[in-house]
Every structure is written in structure tokens, then in C-alpha cells.
Design a protein around this nucleic acid. Structure first.
Lengths: 257, 257
DNA sequence: TTATCTATTATATCTAGACATAAATGGATG
DNA sequence: CATCCATTTATGTCTAGATATAATAGATAA
């Protein structure tokens, strides 16, 4: 599992103590020098092990005070939000895209606030649908800040989905996601081929650049299809990248009657 | 911002090149030795900077190939799932708890699978409600694996919510979350004081220990109240812990008519 | 008593080397 | 031409030091 004398061995040792109940929350972990001596390695090796455990939230470290086993008040999980077309194809369905509408609008106050624009400034509104094997999978309602992305004026988005188009020319560096549930309005129901009031999982996303908010998008999914999955834990079973296995939404597969 | 000659300086330098568009996705980042020479520091310092950028998904590293600016196909976000009572009180509402039911049951096949139990083995089912200022905020439907937590047999959960009780005696080390939307059934509607069919945000969680699955819980929230918020990005505005600001669900505050 | 300064100490970072490891490369061989 | 192998090389890890930084505890002064 872990090479002898490596920082991983030390991580596993400490984790084992905590998992086994030998070191309950609040316990003072041996100091770096002591662990280094005990394992017969350099202090830097111990340091890396403890630093990674601290980053994972397993222990808390403070100068002079030492390293303590953290209390489990909250746990964070990695949530990976993949590109919708990738996700659909990864699950073996066929991806199809349709642009529904594209127009310049004066956003309402809420959206203007999200975009960081004055309410008198036009933004580009694009609506489109993403299909998984002809079943509507995601309804995308997007506002694009034309100050941040002026070349969007010349783009029709008839064939290229806005998310792909934007990713290719405006890399973003910060994002905020809000996940909620809502009932389908008449318009949503019609577009997603649902009944009015059916449950939708709504993911809203704002992305920033150095220049400010690039885009605000509301992604609506039939609740029965879309499931965001996260997995977290300092000691993953399958050693995935960054120690987090992650899954995307669940795509409706062609039913076999 | 970043100390001279530090690994942070190198991180910011590389990030700046990427953000500024000088190094589009796919660009080969200078090798560690070159950067170390350019910055007049040791290779380990450069190594740490690049390793952290790789962990954040900004660059991709492969031995012999070198370090490349990653393409932004997916982005991951930190999702912090706090304890429901903490979250309610943090937002200034009053937390109240009520146990609805507690009984030994034979779980159905789906739940048995989640718990990793044979369908003939009993599990403990606990239903309870969490209120924010007398408004139902979360309906909790929980199954507890009695093989993993035998002392739960003797606990009534009348005053102590299962999540708190479990956290105090069975720390867990791995969890899986599934987030979806669903319409309220008749029973859900009654318990949450909603209409049948109203949208719910459903968070399912399974937690593991060394001994196996501890518990499987379904947490149902009125969609209009509960919003999970995440924030992500390699270059956060406010330097928070681990570079991720995070928020909990939105609590219904007492309305001021 | 209270506030402030100081020494101590554990973590945080850095250095200049070393060897390990994986993968791309080019050459030798069939 | 295809296959295999040794070489090269960039990253991954480790060592044994060093200095920097922050927070505690104790000493001192107001």
C-alpha cells in the first residue's frame, strides 16, 4: 500500500490511529521532530504528510500549539461539474444540441446584479436545450456580459453551445454554484417535455474572469434524470486524483422495452 | 501579496501567464529547473508551486512530458455540507428538532444495497424533522446499520438527532452524496407542510467507516428554502481556507410582514 | 491587577543536493 | 516495416540541514 519511509506511510499511520479511536478528536498529534525520529526520516517528509492531512481537514495545525485531531463538525466534498456534452456521451447516450432563442435584452434587477451590470445595460440572452438521445436533458438559460465578451455579439450560437464557445475563448478562474429545486413553469415544462409543476434540479452558475463576471447561467434538469454525485473522505478506497472520486449527472439512457 | 522567492510567487506568476492569455490551454510550462533558475530558488520550491497548481487542476503534469496548461473541460468545486443545526443557527434562526418515528425494519432492496446488508437483516429506521424557527426545514429519513452501530438499539433519538448522536460516537471517513430533485409525496407533503408535488431538494448520503456502511440518510428540503452554494477557483478573491469559500443552505428566516 | 515585552517552541518554508520513476525517443534487431 | 530495448529526461520523492513566523507562556513594568 504505502512505501516504507514515505510520507504516505506516515499519513496512513496517523489516519490509522484516528480511525482506530486511539486518537479521538482533540488529541495532540506527536510533533514533527518526534515523528521524524520515530520513522527514521527527515522532518520534511513528516511535514508533507501532516500538511496534506491538514488540507484534507483531518487534523488542525497551529504554530507553537502543535497538531491536533480535528473535530468532525462539517465535512466538505468535491463536486465535479462536467461539461454537459461530455457527460452525456460518457454515459453512452448521443448528445444533441438545439438553440431556442438568442436576443439582446435588458436583464431584470436580479440578473443585472448577478452580472454586475447597471440595469440599463444590455446583455445577451441565449436559451438552448441539450438532449441525451432525443430526451431533453438540460435547459440552459444564459446571460452573457457583453462588456466582458464583446465578440459574442457576432456569434449566433446556432451550432456551437454557449458553454463550449465561451470556454474556448474566455477561460474563467472563479465560479459560484447554487443548487436548488424548483417546479417547472409552463414554459419550462413545454421546453423540457414535462408537466407543469414537475420537479427540476436547478444549477445556477456565475463565472468570473479578471475583468469581472463573464456569464450567468441557469441550468434546469428534470429531477428524475439529473443527480449530482460527490464523494469525499481522507482515505479513498480507489486512489483517484486528489483523493476524490466523482461522478456526473445521470443521463436518461434509451429504455429497452 | 506573495513573498519574494516563495512558492507563492511562482504560483502567481504562472497563474498570471495563464489568466493573461500568454499561455493558452495546452501550452508547455517551463520545466522545473528552468523556473528555479529564473526565480533564483531551489527546484523544490518550484516543485511545490507546480504541484499545488496541478492539484487545483490548473496544469497537468506527466513525467518526461512536462507540465501543460490544462484545458478547462470540467471544474470541481468544494461543497461543504454542514450540520443542519449549526447551519440554521448560523443564519440567525432558532433550531428545533422533532423525532417522528423510530422502528426496526427490514429495508427494501435498494436501501439494503446502500447499507451493504442482506435483505433479511434488520436495520434501524429513524424519521425526524428539523425546524428553522418553526418552519420545517429538513425531513430526515435515516437507516442505521446495526451491525456497525449496535448501541443504536438502546438509543431513542427522542432528544438527540441521529446525525449528532452518530457523529459523536462513530466518526466516518468516507461519504457519498447524491443530490437530486423530487416532487413531494403525500407523506412528505404532510410532514413538511407542503402541497403534494411541491419540489424538494433531496440530498442522500452514505457514510463509511472501516467496518463498512454506517448509515444511509435521505434529507429532503423544500426547494424554495434549501440552496447549496459552492465556490471554486484556483485564484480566489478572498484568500479563504484551501482557497474555497463555501456557504450552506439558505434558511427560511422569519418573515417581517 | 493589567498590560506589555521577551524567550521559547512548534510549525512553515526554503536550500542544495540525491536517487526513484515513468514515459518519450531513437536505435538496434528481427 | 514492426518490435523491442536502452537511453534520456522531466517529474516525484527524500534528506539534512537552515531560516522565518506565529503563538504561547512567563517575566516585567505600569
Amino acid at each position: 500500500m504505502s512505501a516504507r519511509g514515505s510520507y504516505l506511510e506516515i499519513k496512513h499511520h496517523v489516519l490509522g490511529k484516528i480511525r482506530g479511536g486511539d486518537w479521538p478528536p482533540g488529541t495532540l498529534v506527536p510533533k514533527e521532530r518526534e515523528l521524524a525520529e520515530a520513522f527514521g526520516c527527515a522532518r520534511m517528509t513528516v511535514h508533507r504528510a501532516l500538511r496534506e492531512l491538514a488540507e484534507e481537514g483531518v487534523v488542525e495545525r497551529r504554530r507553537r500549539s502543535g497538531t491536533r485531531v480535528a473535530l468532525q463538525t462539517t465535512r466538505s466534498a468535491m463536486l465535479e461539474i462536467p461539461r454537459v456534452d461530455h457527460e452525456i456521451e460518457r454515459q453512452g447516450a448521443t448528445y444533441r444540441y438545439r438553440r431556442l432563442a438568442r436576443r439582446l435584452v435588458l436583464p431584470n434587477d436580479a440578473v443585472a446584479g448577478h452580472l454586475g451590470l447597471p440595469a440599463t445595460r444590455q446583455a445577451l440572452r441565449v436559451d438552448c436545450l441539450h438532449f441525451a438521445t432525443d430526451v431533453p436533458f438540460q435547459l440552459e438559460e444564459r446571460w452573457i456580459n457583453l462588456d466582458a465578451v464583446p465578440d459574442a455579439r457576432a456569434e449566433s450560437f446556432r451550432d456551437t453551445p454557449p458553454n463550449v464557445w465561451l470556454l474556448e475563448r474566455r477561460p474563467w478562474f472563479e465560479a459560484e454554484h447554487v443548487i436548488s429545486a424548483a417546479g417547472a413553469s409552463a414554459r419550462h415544462a413545454e421546453r423540457l417535455n414535462l408537466a407543469v409543476g414537475d420537479s427540476l434540479l436547478v444549477v445556477e452558475r456565475r463565472t468570473w474572469n479578471d475583468t469581472g463576471v463573464i456569464t450567468y447561467v441557469r441550468m434546469l434538469h428534470p429531477g428524475r434524470f439529473y443527480r449530482l454525485r460527490t464523494s469525499a473522505g481522507p482515505a479513498p478506497r480507489a486512489p483517484g486524483p486528489a483523493g476524490h472520486a466523482s461522478f456526473g449527472p445521470q443521463v436518461p439512457l434509451p429504455s429497452t422495452p
